[in-house]
Design a protein around this nucleic acid. Sequence first.
DNA 1: GCCGTTTTCGGCCCGACTGTTTTCAGTCG
Length: 605
Amino acid sequence: MSFNSDVAKLLDEISAMLELLEENPFKVNAHARAARAIEGHSGDLRTAAEDRKALLAIEGVGPKIADKIIEFARTGRISEHEELAAQVPPGLRGLMGIPGLGPKTIRMLWRERGITDIAGLKAIIADGSILDLPRMGKKAVEKIEHAIKFAEQDTGRMHLGVAMPVALEIVARMRAVPGVAHAAYAGSLRRGKESVGDIDILVSTTDPAGAAEAFTTMPGVVSVLASGDRKCSVRFALAADLGRWKAEGRSGDVEHRASAQVDLRMVDEDSWGAALMYFTGSKEHNVRLRERALKKGLTLNEYGLFPDDKDPAPPQQRGVKPVAGRTEEEVYRVLGLVCVPPEIREDRGELALKATPRLVEIADIKAELHAHTTESDGSLSLAELAGAAESRGFHTVAVTDHSRSSAFAGGLDVRRLKAQRKAIEAARGATGGITILHGSEVDILADGRMDFEDETLAWLDIVVASPHASLGQDPGAATARLIRAVGNPHVNILGHPTGRLINKRPGLDPAMAEVIAAAKEHDVALEINAHWLRLDLRDSHVRAAVEAGCLIAIDCDVHRMNDFDNLLYGILTGRRGWLPPEQCINTWPAEKLHAWLARKHCAQG
DNA sequence: GCCGTTTTCGGCCCGACTGTTTTCAGTCG
């Protein structure tokens, strides 16, 4: 856990506890909003906490919350948090994790019956006494029972790479339904977040009932949570699709969730753009857009942008004609904004843009610079790897098998590395269309030394230096380790810099600003490892690196043929970090890329 | 508790669905 997420977590908990205590809802919201702003803040607040002005510059952080952050930096605690925690039983937060149970219901259960945890709730359901409480009928209680079961088996948010194939399949099915003109996935999935809570699908249709019917009876639907004219929610089985991930997964890769919530929204064609924006979010971005609309005498909802006539009834129900709504571009234009790519709609400065930024795209990528073969732990031969890269339209592929310390992965020693060079030279003669570089994914040892001597690193074409072991070391040691690694004169790329696995392993927690500065100084590119379990660098670190002018590599860390498909997730993460193509070395023309790599290596083997 | 191209005080986004209700409260996104 980084300092930023520690602070964000405490502020979030303060918000939740204030809500349970029936405090001013705007105060509740202010803490929640500050928590989100801090979680997504690209700089390390550990240092900013010394400078009150820097904290106040963050949107959503005012004088009171700034003081709380400073208190946490100095003492490791926030006294207000502790005072609240003394008033709110800890089990109540567990209850808040049950879908369908909100603060009002939980407060009522607590005040009326002294329920403070899931066990207590189960007890009054079992003896039937819950039915005596207000608004607690038979159906409501059944729903709560169902939700408890779900909450107890839920393992948290889904990985991006698990949700995306499901969303693509559902979108394809919905496009084939009669009456459906457009179908797309929206929500945090469209914004490319590393994990998503649910899957949002949007369709424009002339036949909502038909679309709803098709959706709720689709193969894979295990239960229907809600079904109306405008919106349906289902739980969708993941098991069927998991075979693919299971088959290709390394140990620990398997997603344990049995099902995912999928929401379908149905709109008219005239509302398509407004609805797509609305359901893409983020919530914070949308709030900003609505505020801007109101200042222009307009009101924005998922049906369109309307003149604001102060009538409390929704304009679309009164036959008011929208001034925009068919496309996203149109809505942004009428609001006086440039169209903002979905990945950066997070209320982190995107609304101040004067032109739509050109962010890196899949089609820009011309090189894979981190790939394994059967020599170490990959499943592709040299020829298969080169062929696959060439068929993707790449001009370059780098063979970077593991170094000797990664014994578990069949890491190569110097002797095998030299033998591999001969094989690669032979393969170069056989393939004309693609440049095969010979490199290594060299372990960064715990103290920052490389797993090979400099004289070996010197004759390779490319060196990707990555941490694989000692991933639990303290932040100070991790920072020194990575800075020493990028200072090596032969290192080109810092591979998966933290070694984290999303939702499974936190990895290193270095002072990223210092690592970025060192990488910039030594002309080392920081990798976005595109595997959906890694996405390392993460989005906020990419943003910080981009702002610092640091180079970025987006690589699939190919072990198997399908791994090339993970490129999408690396691209989405790069875009979330506002990465322009020219700052990503994989987009460079062959001559430029090869020359850049060669500066740190001599030719002979 | 935060914020300001109407405001340093008085606001703070908008709509759908469900269940328990005779007109709405609660939750969610």
